[in-house]
């Protein structure tokens, strides 16, 4: 069995296992699994509206997944994508609301501000790691909380007068597209998916084809050898966090300028950043893998909304089934070992 085939088979088997265990749970609790999965499928891809919503959901997942994957390739675990995502969201809406400019300046400016905000938020843990060897996991977790509450404060005290959400960004800073919406029966599909796909390409090109990518990957594989070869390990650590933060900030802009067009106070994390970790792992930390993994996650998330309505499965059970699929995906190591066994037997 070739390595490539194994890489493709692993997530597929994980998905199947999740579905099988989900089926068992539904049978035990007295729900019809066939109806439920049909509803999931229908809810994700069944008509243009659902399809549009699914693609919309995929967009931030791609970018959050790229953010985690990029840092991971350089040997860093960026748990802070959620926080970088939130500050990106805030910055994009802020710039969207603060200026009145022609669209060809305003929209790029809002998007770039989200990138800068995310980059800045990731720069801090990168710097602390490079300079003082402070573990990035701890710093980024803490930065997530700071982001959450800073955003809430800014929304209530700076952007509005004590309100819980901002107004909508003007057309000149919006990614929304009436044409895409009309194609998909008024879903919230927006141009962001194009940006996300371009970012997949950028990540692939940057890592695999450029001199900088050669250094970044070398640092990820073996810091000692990178240092020996004359590469600056610290510089590459910081750079990788900054690029990771840019992807995360862009994911925020997708919500701020596309899906919602505003930012509201949040009592807890959105989960986009954390799902990004699962997306990156499932996608094997490659650009193409992240794209497909994000498609799966987006489809599950959106399709699940239809399960209570169409099949009467309670929300909690839907969450459990989704969690099971994610669990098996995350536990794909076990499947990999299993596949190795099989291929060893074949060799004999």
């Amino acid at each position: 069995m070739s390595k490539r085939l194994k890489n493709i088979l692993t997530p597929i088997i994980a998905l199947l296992l999740g579905i099988i265990v989900g089926t068992i749970i539904m049978i035990v609790t007295g729900y019809n699994p066939l109806d439920a999965y049909a509803a999931l499928w229908e809810g994700a891809l069944g008509n243009p509206y659902y399809l549009g919503e699914t693609i919309r959901q995929i967009t931030p997942y791609i970018l959050a997944g790229l953010a985690v994957a990029f840092a991971f390739r350089v040997g860093l675990f960026n748990i802070g994508v959620e926080g970088q995502f939130l500050v990106g969201w805030l910055a994009s809406v802020w710039v969207g609301l603060a200026f009145h400019l022609p669209k060809f300046i305003h929209l790029p400016l809002a998007i770039i501000s989200a990138m800068v905000a995310g980059a800045l938020w990731a720069f801090i843990p990168g710097l602390l790691k490079a300079r003082f060897r402070v573990h990035e996991v701890i710093v980024t977790i803490m930065m997530n909380y700071i982001a959450l509450y800073v955003c809430n404060y800014v929304i209530q005290n700076v952007l509005t007068n004590g309100k819980e959400r901002t107004g909508n960004v003007p057309d000149s800073a919006s990614l929304a597209s009436p044409w895409l919406q009309s194609l998909t029966q008024n879903s919230r599909l927006h141009w962001g998916i194009v940006i996300a796909i371009i970012c997949c390409f950028i990540m692939w090109f940057l890592l695999e084809k450029t001199t900088r990518g050669f250094e970044l990957r070398a640092v990820g594989f073996n810091q000692d050898a990178a240092h020996y070869a004359g590469m600056s390990v610290n510089k590459n650590i910081i750079l990788s966090m900054v690029i990771s933060g840019i992807f995360a900030g862009l994911a925020g802009a997708m919500e701020g300028l596309g899906t919602f067009g505003y930012i509201a106070m949040k009592s807890s994390f959105t989960g986009v950043g954390f799902n990004g970790i699962a997306v990156a792992l499932l996608g094997g930390n490659t650009a193409l893998g992240v794209f497909f993994a994000a498609c799966l996650f987006g489809a599950l998330e959106v399709g699940a909304l239809n399960m209570p309505l169409a099949a009467g499965v309670p929300n909690e059970l839907v969450d459990i089934i989704i969690a099971l699929i994610v669990f098996f995906v995350a536990a794909s190591y076990i499947i990999r070992v299993f596949l190795e066994r099989i291929s060893k037997k074949e060799a004999k």
């Binding site: 050898a225 990178a226 004359g230 590469m231 600056s232």
Partner: peptide, 27 residues
Amino acid sequence: LTPRKITESGVGHIPQDRHKHGLVLNY
């Protein structure tokens, strides 16, 4: 000076630990 500057000044180094320093094994 940084390792890069030293390398460029004409120093070659066959390191003691080839796995740790000499090679990126996954390349």
